[in-house]
Amino acid sequence: MNLPQQLREHIINHYIKDKAPDGFNDDDNLIDQGLLDSLAIMNLIVWLEKQAAIEFDEGDIVLENFSSVKALLDFVRRKCAVSSDD
């Protein structure tokens, strides 16, 4: 399973399952719906750093990058692309 798939599965299993309304999709806002609260965000950052080896730069941990499953996947793809260019 590649990283975006792993991340999507992790988010759904840990933060969305049982809480999301019916018909939830990747564009839906995780913050407004209260699916990622302050503790969940910290746990997700730990997971991304430890399990996905994502290195956060100053300014990466902002609402725009965590607002939806799609935004998170886009962020991870950007980070992976940058690190493979290095």
Binding site: I31, G34, L39, L63, F66
Partner: peptide, 9 residues
Amino acid sequence: LCKNSFGST
């Protein structure tokens, strides 16, 4: 209680 832990929030 904060809605999330982003700096801006």
